[in-house]
Design a protein around this nucleic acid. Structure first.
Lengths: 162, 162
DNA sequence: GAGGCGTTGTTGCGAATGCAACAAACTCAG
DNA sequence: CTGAGTTTGTTGCATTCGCAACAACGCCTC
């Protein structure tokens, strides 16, 4: 007698043509846009976007924050953050302060120079972003954001940048 | 007397909220999706997506191709491609052959192992891409591709992957 | 409070990266 | 032909990266 077996392995699906087109466009365009903005920052002798994001996340938190609580929203690995903070600390933009309730970790806080640097970066970052995205209007941008967030399984609205 | 001066510097625009949301979603989602697929390849002990793309581009060209003609569609810098080919050649996936009409360059061609490797990678790449993109349907994917291509200023249809 | 286990963060090391300098070949005006 | 200028591709070097190993602490059970 034949029984319906529990399907252990799905059939290996091949992406449809529209999916492939979306995949390719996503790769190419996100890279191009990102490079445009990074170049603008580099030309202004300013640090990487990552630095901005760290500073901004710390500023949003509005209180000293532990690395582990930053790594998640930043989408980066612990060891990446560790060395990132090393370099930012060397440049005097953040400082590690002792963490009272967990002696292995510490709390991260921007220095005054850190706050100022983020603001200075924004004066370059913002126009560069605007320029890089100028080919689409607000309505399209919103639609794009919604499609992307659905694709990424994000169903809460992501807070804007600054 | 006041004259209308030629506007040398545009007013530094701040991205609208929808633009910022699209920007953020683009960064986050493209990274997440890409990592999913790269992980699948890594778990299968297969090379990087970049390798796939080089092999695929060479296969599409259907004839030995010069590095400079590859670097553009691949969106990578000459020196990146140079070392990439070094490594692929070491692994026996492509070979550099002398270029008759320009002695400083050479022509790139996949080896038989190269063709086979691309095919093998596709058996992992394709399902991984499909899985990573499963949250959207074909109609949405098409819409997404169109929006992205408009954003990137690409107005020719990008050929699908394989 | 000792021992096992998960968490948090860092680091040594080999590989990869970006940048600027470079070599070699092509082009073309004079 | 000669020499200036461009194109094509590579490489030395310092920086950065990924991975796996590691130290240090917290937590929980006995």
């Amino acid at each position: 007698m034949r029984m319906q077996q529990t399907q252990l392995k799905e059939p290996a699906r091949i992406p449809s043509d529209p999916i492939q087109r979306a995949w390719i466009a996503l790769g190419r365009v996100s890279q191009a846009i990102r490079e445009d903005v990074e170049l603008a920052l580099k030309n202004a002798r300013l640090p990487d976007i990552t630095w901005y994001t760290v500073l901004w996340e710390l500023e949003r938190a509005a209180k000293p924050t532990r690395p582990k609580d930053l790594a998640i929203p930043l989408f980066i690995l612990p060891y990446q953050l560790s060395r990132l903070v090393d370099r930012m600390e060397e440049e005097g933009l953040v400082k590690r302060i002792a963490c009272p309730e967990d002696k292995r970790g510490h709390l991260l806080e921007p220095t005054p120079e850190g706050y100022e640097m983020r603001k200075r970066m924004w004066t370059v970052y913002a126009p560069a972003m605007d320029e890089a995205m100028k080919r689409i209007g607000d309505a399209e941008a919103l639609q794009l954001a919604q499609l992307l967030n659905r694709l990424g399984g994000i169903d809460y609205p992501v807070p804007p940048k600054a």
